[in-house]
Amino acid sequence: MKIALIGYGKMGKAIEAIAVAKGHEISHIIDADSQHLLEKDNLQSADVAIEFSTPETAFSNILKCFEAGVPVVSGTTGWLEHLPEVTAKCLEKHQAFLYASNFSIGVNIFFELNKKLAELMGPHADYNVQMEEIHHTQKKDAPSGTAITLAEQILAASQAKKSWVNEGTHDADKLGIVSKRIDPAPGTHVVNYTSTIDDITIIHTAHSRQGFASGAVTAAEWLKDKKGVFSMKDVLNL
Rank of each mutant, 00 (worst) to 15 (best):
I148V: 13
H135I: 03
T149F: 00
K174D: 00
A21V: 08
P71W: 08
R181D: 01
H136W: 12
I30L: 13
E152L: 13
L117S: 05
T196P: 08
E92A: 15
A216Y: 11
T149V: 12
P143H: 09
A14G: 09
A96N: 06
K233G: 12
A14Y: 06
H189A: 13
T201Q: 14
H36K: 10
E56R: 10
P71K: 09
P123K: 02
L63P: 00
L175Y: 01
G75S: 09
P184C: 11
T57E: 02
G9F: 08
K2I: 00
K224Q: 12
M1L: 13
Q210I: 15
I177S: 03
F110N: 08
A219I: 07
D31H: 15
K233E: 14
G187H: 07
H28E: 04
I29E: 10
A125T: 12
W222M: 12
S45H: 07
T77Y: 00
S179M: 02
V73P: 10
T77Q: 10
T188Y: 04
E81M: 06
A125N: 09
P84N: 09
I197H: 09
D198A: 15
L113N: 07
S27I: 13
K64A: 10
I62F: 09
K115T: 01
A96T: 11
F52T: 03
Y127A: 07
D183I: 05
A216K: 12
A32D: 03
V20S: 04
V235W: 12
F66A: 04
K227W: 00
